[in-house]
């Protein structure tokens, strides 16, 4: 018994010794748990979808169960269907419009806010304000969107207030319009822009800006030449964090937009769920692959022309 235990201990300590000395082994030990998880539960599913979209996975029924067979003849049928469907491009444009507006809108609001928080508040106030910004996020996304919907309802507070102030004669309905969708999206994604920008602006050395002033730069020039370039990594991170989910957003248009628009996220969801069975899966997969391609290209171009340094918090 004792000898066995000794054996195990010495084996372990030898192993530990090897690990300590072998850099490559250490790297593998640190990286493999995460990489394996991602490989199995992210990349493999992705490959499965890719195969489905090219009609390379075929389902066959054997008795009461189904077996999947890999076919090595790729087929572009589902991609052709996707591109020839009426409205596909409109749907993509609609999403681009929502996502661009949301990104620019949140950026225009976030930057002055982050600037104010970083430079005009002391440490205690900063913490308090951060707390105030985070607090609404404990309320579920759908509930928040619903609250906005009731706000914009013709019987809701905005409409009744405007009526009481005599600004409008009758009840006005903001929900059901694109404006409602855009306002709600900016509201919902604001924090994803604000936090990364605040993260970098907060680290900017105040003396640097003061130095710019003493050297005679105007506030505007300081902003453009000093503050903005220093804030760039945060702006990049924020833009990605807002643009990508906003591109796929389809719940907000349903809840506050009257369901009249048809963003790409909704299209994929519908292809997948409304056309039953493997056909729908393949159609949805093809749409998803094209969409991912677009996002990857957009991200690449963005990195290429705006910069690659990303900083989160």
């Amino acid at each position: 018994m004792a000898a066995g235990a000794d054996g195990v201990v010495s084996l372990l300590s030898r192993l530990a010794d090897r690990i300590r000395r072998d850099r490559r082994l250490k790297t593998i030990l640190f990286l493999s748990p995460g990489l394996i998880t991602l490989a199995v539960f992210f990349f493999l599913p992705f490959v499965v979808s890719l195969l489905l979209s090219f009609d390379m996975l075929v389902r066959e029924r054997v008795g009461n169960t189904f077996v999947w067979i890999l076919s090595l003849q790729p087929n572009l049928e589902y991609y052709i269907k996707f591109f020839t469907s009426p409205g596909t491009s409109v749907s993509i444009m609609q999403s681009l419009y929502y996502a661009s507006f949301t990104t620019i809108g949140t950026l225009l609001i976030s930057f002055p806010m982050a600037y104010y928080m970083a430079f005009k508040l002391d440490r205690r106030r900063k913490n308090f304000v951060l707390f105030l910004i985070f607090l609404p996020f404990w309320v579920n996304f759908i509930i928040r969107v619903y609250a906005i919907r009731f706000l914009f309802h013709p019987d809701g507070i905005v409409s009744t207030t405007l009526m009481a102030l005599g600004i409008t004669d009758g009840p006005i309905s903001i929900i059901g319009t694109d404006a409602a969708v855009l306002i709600t999206m900016v509201y919902s994604y604001l924090i994803f822009m604000l936090l990364p920008i605040y993260g970098v602006v907060e680290k900017i050395n105040k003396e640097l800006i003061e130095a710019a002033y003493t050297l005679g730069a105007t506030p505007f020039k300081t902003l453009v030449k000093v503050t903005l370039p220093l804030a760039k990594p945060g702006i990049i991170a924020g833009s990605l964090l807002v643009f990508i989910p906003a591109m796929g957003e389809f719940i907000i248009p349903i809840i506050v937009g009257g369901g009249k628009s048809y963003p790409i996220g909704r299209l994929i969801f519908d292809q997948f769920i409304k056309v039953s069975g493997i056909q729908g899966w393949a159609l949805g997969s093809a749409a998803a692959m094209v969409y991912v391609g677009l996002i990857v290209i957009a991200t690449y171009l963005y990195f290429r022309f705006v910069g690659r340094e990303v900083t989160l918090i």
């Binding site: 990286l31 990605l240 990508i244 989910p245 996220g265 899966w281 996002i295």
Partner: peptide
């Protein structure tokens, strides 16, 4: 490690892939 920039990009792929796509592909895979 060698190829760490590629590795870095690979790890970040799930962040730039739209959630609806991740959800659908995972469901199909399962």
């Amino acid at each position: 490690p060698r190829g760490s920039t590629i590795l870095d990009s690979l790890i970040m792929v799930p962040i730039i892939i739209p959630e609806i796509v991740e959800a659908v592909t995972l469901a199909l895979f399962l």
